[in-house]
């Protein structure tokens, strides 16, 4: 079980959270104008990296808020959590000196 740091409440056990899938997948600003390729990418293509993954979590049994998390999918080490709306952190910088 993961220990996840909610940016609003602090560290809590994974059981209090819901996973929300890959983060920073933005819906088109004007959905009527985009083509099928764009919809395919938005709805279905996922990076699914073996390494650093940016993902959404919701503190469902706590403050109820969504936030983002950077986690290494090999070790499951959580490198950083940050509030929704904050920019995506630089992956290269996050990975240095964190995990073996």
């Amino acid at each position: 079980m993961l220990l996840i740091e909610c940016p609003y409440c602090g560290p809590r056990p994974e059981l209090e959270f819901r996973y929300g899938g890959e983060a920073h997948v933005a819906r088109a600003a004007d959905p009527a104008t985009v083509d099928d390729e764009h919809w395919t990418a938005f709805l279905f293509w996922r990076g699914n990296p073996k390494g650093l993954h940016f993902e959404r979590w919701r503190h469902a049994s706590g403050c109820g808020r969504f936030f983002n998390c950077a986690r290494d999918t090999v070790s499951d080490v959580i490198v950083k959590t940050y509030k929704a709306g904050e920019p995506k952190p630089d992956a290269a910088r996050l990975m240095t000196g964190t995990t073996p």
């Binding site: 079980m1 994974e14 059981l15 996973y19 073996k50 499951d76």
Partner: peptide
């Protein structure tokens, strides 16, 4: 598990 991972173990819960 709820989240994607390549850790080939899975949570105890």
């Amino acid at each position: 598990d709820a989240y994607t991972s390549y850790s080939q173990t899975g949570g105890l819960h």
